[in-house]
Measured scan of single mutants.
Amino acid sequence: MIINNLKLIREKKKISQSELAALLEVSRQTINGIEKNKYNPSLQLALKIAYYLNTPLEDIFQ
């Protein structure tokens, strides 16, 4: 099972779900679904998340 630290990292960087969704060009519901482990992001989306949060991919999804 993948450990998902997206919410923790996003909140630590003081970025809202809506702000991150806008940067990634996805819906806020997509971010919410990823954070609640209801949706697994594509590799492309996971890499974009890591880029915009300036955090290694391995720290977000373990």
Score class of each variant (00 low, 15 high):
F61G: 03
K13N: 11
S16R: 06
Q62T: 11
E25G: 15
S42T: 13
L57D: 02
T55Q: 05
P56R: 11
L47A: 09
N5D: 04
D59S: 09
Y52H: 12
I49E: 00
D59H: 11
R28N: 07
Q17R: 09
L57H: 05
I15S: 01
P41G: 03
Y39E: 07
R28S: 11
N32A: 15
R10I: 04
N54H: 09
E11K: 11
N54F: 05
Y39W: 12
M1Y: 12
I9M: 07
R28V: 15
N40W: 15
Q29Y: 09
I9L: 09
E58S: 13
K48F: 04
K38I: 14
Q44R: 13
Q44Y: 10
K14E: 08
Q29G: 12
E11I: 13
D59M: 13
L23D: 06
K36C: 11
K7Y: 06
N32M: 13
T30I: 15
Q44N: 11
M1H: 13
K38S: 10
I15R: 03
N37L: 08
Y39T: 09
P41A: 06
Q17P: 06
E11F: 06
A21M: 04
N32Y: 08
G33I: 10
E19L: 08
S16H: 04
S18E: 14
L43G: 07
I31H: 01
P56K: 09
N4R: 03
L47K: 12
E58I: 10
N37C: 13
L20A: 00
S18T: 12
I2T: 10
N40L: 15
P56G: 05
L6H: 02
F61M: 04
L6Q: 02
Y51T: 08
Q44E: 14
N37Y: 09
Q17V: 14
A50D: 01
E11Y: 05
I31L: 14
Y52V: 15
S16K: 08
K38C: 13
T30L: 15
N32E: 15
P56M: 07
S42C: 07
E35R: 03
K36F: 06
N37H: 13
L8W: 08
L53H: 02
L47P: 00
P41R: 02
E35C: 04
A46M: 15
I3P: 09
L47W: 06
S42L: 04
Y51R: 10
K13L: 14
E35S: 02
E58L: 11
L53Y: 01
A46C: 13
I9C: 07
I49M: 06
L24G: 02
A21V: 03
T55K: 04
L6D: 02
K12I: 11
K36D: 12
I49A: 02
A21S: 06
Y52T: 07
L53G: 00
N32H: 12
A50Y: 02
T30S: 05
Q44T: 13
L8F: 12
I60D: 00
E11D: 08
I31W: 00
L6P: 01
A21F: 03
L45T: 05
K48H: 05
K7D: 03
A50E: 05
R10S: 02
S18C: 10
L57E: 02
L43S: 06
T55A: 08
I49K: 00
L24A: 10
I49D: 00
T55W: 05
F61I: 04
I60H: 00
L23Q: 09
L45V: 05
N5K: 07
L57Y: 10
P41K: 01
N4I: 09
T55I: 07
N4S: 04
R10W: 07
E58H: 12
Q17E: 04
A50Q: 04
Y52M: 10
S42M: 04
K14M: 10
L57S: 03
M1V: 13
N37K: 10
F61T: 02
S16G: 07
I15G: 01
K14Y: 07
K14P: 03
I3A: 08
S18R: 15
K14H: 13
N5C: 11
T55D: 02
P56C: 07
L45N: 01
N54Q: 14
N54E: 14
I49P: 00
K7A: 11
I31Y: 05
K7W: 05
Y52W: 09
Q17G: 04
L23N: 07
S42Q: 05
Y51F: 12
A21C: 04
V26C: 07
A50C: 06
M1K: 12
Q17T: 08
G33L: 15
S42V: 05
R28P: 15
A22D: 12
Q17I: 12
K12W: 08
L43W: 13
L6F: 01
S18G: 12
L43H: 12
K38N: 11
L6A: 02
I15C: 07
I34L: 08
S18Y: 10
L24H: 00
N37F: 10
I49H: 00
V26W: 03
T30V: 15
V26F: 03
I15T: 04
D59E: 14
K13W: 08
I9E: 04
M1N: 12
E19K: 13
R10K: 01
G33N: 15
Y52I: 14
Q62F: 13
N4F: 05
S16C: 04
T55P: 03
I34Y: 04
A46P: 04
I3W: 07
E11W: 06
M1I: 15
Q62C: 11
L20S: 00
Q62K: 11
N54L: 07
E11N: 08
L23T: 06
R10M: 08
L6N: 03
E19I: 07
Y52F: 14
L24P: 00
K38M: 14
A22T: 15
K7S: 08
P41M: 05
K48W: 06
I34S: 01
N32R: 15
F61Q: 02
L8Q: 15
L43N: 06
S27Y: 03
N54W: 05
A22M: 13
Y39V: 14
R28F: 11
I3N: 12
A22C: 11
Q62R: 11
L57R: 03
N5R: 10
L8D: 11
Q44A: 14
I31G: 01
I2F: 12
K7P: 04
E58T: 11
S27L: 04
M1S: 12
P41W: 04
G33C: 15
V26T: 06
Q17K: 07
K12E: 11
L47V: 11
G33M: 15
K13M: 13
L24Q: 00
K13T: 06
L8Y: 10
L47R: 10
I60M: 05
I9V: 10
S18M: 12
I60L: 10
K7H: 07
K12D: 08
A22V: 11
S27E: 06
S27K: 08
L24K: 01
D59C: 14
A21Y: 03
